[in-house]
Nucleic acid binder design. Structure first.
Lengths: 194, 194
DNA sequence: AGAATTTTCTACCGCGTGGTTAGTATACTG
DNA sequence: CAGTATACTAACCACGCGGTAGAAAATTCT
């Protein structure tokens, strides 16, 4: 038996630990999420947690990767079948919708992208700006957007606006995120459409 | 002697402590800024720090208030003499310029507005969205912007875009923040101007 | 049933945290 | 010169942190 196949309980525990870690980070932030709290929330001891993961940091990183996978899958599915400006609009709408539906994941991501610049430098998904810039460039090349649009700068603005929309919606549940997304799309259309 | 007037050294120590705290937060983030590190950076003992401030938290809060006062003063001076869309544009440009010139203050502010939602709830300047919304509404009422602009949503988008521009500029010094600010202003003008 | 392995717990370790206490130079003041 | 407020330091405290050691359950395999 050259490879170790994960046991059933192993799999279950890992997903459970990832789950409780996500909600803990959502509730208490990164620094407030200690090994003891993770263990307590999962109903096991600290040592048991470190039996399934090499370190507390690994648990948090696994949880972060998990939520990131989720949002990437959802947004990817929404964007992939489309092209041009429609793809960019699908990105905006699907991202806002997903994060609206999963506030815990949202908290986790927001905490994550402002991770301390201590030893571990930015896990800050490095390709996000580039991905959106590519969508903007595609919309331009498809003839939907003016040729003088700056994909890089526009992408930064779009992502910033999205983060703000989601962040506000966390503290103000009455905030209409779908409407805000539409407003952003309208702005983009008026500014760069042709 | 009903009121205590601060001594000269008292004043000096306080400003010094605030200064080192700002750079510490900028370098190591909020959680990485401990009382011992503040004391060491200032060249005095922990107890001496707590002699001038009631708690470590008070030091950090004072430092945060200090940088906030600075940016408010600068942006306020730039915005005040103007009106309509010009005031909003001055807000955008002066904010970006100030934060570009004071990266340490920027780090501090960015760390601060993502403060842990633990016990201390958001110091997240609550009036920022409202202030910008007021500027947008003023631009609308002055006839510079369409009457169907939504000040609240637009303010959220603007502030988010600004945060993103500043954040990117921190990790990518080559990023042209002034150009990005102009781009944002152009977008706003095309979308809502008349 | 018995052996082997997977999973878990209790107890502990060293460390860094924010904060306190007692004592001590210094300097100003009556 | 005595008295007092200022501005500090060294030592200490309790606590929560991530992580480890070894034994004890639980589970699975033969």
């Amino acid at each position: 038996m050259p490879i170790r196949q994960p046991t059933l309980t192993e799999q279950a525990r890992r997903t459970q630990l990832i789950g409780v870690t996500i909600s803990l980070v959502a509730r208490h932030g990164y620094p407030g999420t200690s090994l003891a709290r993770i263990a307590e929330a999962a109903g096991i001891s600290k040592a048991a947690v470190l039996y399934h993961f090499p370190s507390k940091d690994a648990v948090v990183r696994a949880a972060y990767a998990s939520v990131l996978d989720g949002v990437v899958a959802r947004v990817g599915a929404a964007v992939e079948p489309l092209a041009g400006a429609a793809a960019l609009e699908a990105y905006i709408r699907s991202l806002v919708a997903y994060l609206r539906e999963n506030p815990d994941h949202t908290r986790m991501i927001i905490e994550g992208l402002t991770a301390d610049a201590d030893v571990t430098d930015t896990p800050h998904s490095p390709g996000r700006t580039e991905s959106v810039a590519a969508l903007v460039a595609a919309a331009r090349d498809a003839g939907d957007y003016r040729s003088d649009v700056d994909p890089q700068v526009t992408a930064v603005i779009i992502n910033g606006a999205l983060d703000a929309i989601v962040t506000v919606s966390l503290t103000d549940p009455a905030f209409d995120t779908a409407r805000a997304a539409d407003e952003l799309i309208t702005m983009l259309g008026r500014a760069w459409g042709r």
